[in-house]
Amino acid sequence: MSFECHEPSSVTDAVALGARFGEEGRFLAGGTDLIIQMRRGKVGPRHVMSLHRVSGLDRIEADGAVRLGALVTHRTIERCPAFQGPLQALVESAAVVGGHQIRNVATVGGNIVNASPAADVVPVLLALDATVTCLGPDGERTLTLDGFLTGPGQTARRPGELLTSVRFDQLPPGSATAFVKAGRRKAMEISVVCVAVRLTLDAAHARCQEARIALGAVAPTTLRARAAERALEGQPLTDEVLRRAGRLAAGECGPIDDVRASARYRRLLVETLVPRALRRSLERIGRAA
């Protein structure tokens, strides 16, 4: 590792530095991925722009739409009172990232920009139809998270652009979320598969009005299981319907074999964990009602 370190004190300064260094610069937030990648020689920026002095990006706003500053840490999400209700999947996903030491510094912005297909919070955000806002020399632009994630480690972020926030709407009544994860250990795990779901039921709680299913670690990016979602919407959510959604999701993902698991096992997990997360979500709606 060898680089120049810059410590901008505002978003404006950070963006100016980002514009100046372009491809040769990297923003540093918690560093839980970037420092390791640099040490492994995977990336070698000449300029590192540490955001630790930038204020204002570490806040959660939850009046009306929810807005997470890019520097909000996993530990902050985990302990945020606004996420104890229908948005509980955010807490569930943030709480299983690394240990406390990681979660105290790892940020939501870093997690998104790092674009690991196995990220844990990202599927939840995807299930919430989140958008991300980036600020660059050409000004601010807002993209859907789904569109932002383009490949493993790849995003639509332009060189020098700073992801400043992620935003999603509060859920309508009759909604809940759930997150489940499989890994070899019960902590300190990169997901073998993770599943985030969001369900909204109709007013009578008889049928599914809207469903979102997002899958981690089974495709080059975090993946929406759209066929499985369609199979739920408009349907009464019987166990058979949930299991069918699991089978469809298993069919539409594209896992690989790696040292953590085989593709076959990952599909089996998707088939199992999707209905499990949906069931949990349904129970939560029932409890809230």
């Binding site: 240990g99 070899r184 250990r185 019960k186 902590a187 300190m188 795990e189 990169i190 040292v259 953590r260």
Partner: peptide, 11 residues
């Protein structure tokens, strides 16, 4: 140690 998996407190 990401993928050589020794038991943690929770395991």
């Amino acid at each position: 140690l990401t993928d050589y998996k020794m038991p943690t407190t929770l395991d």
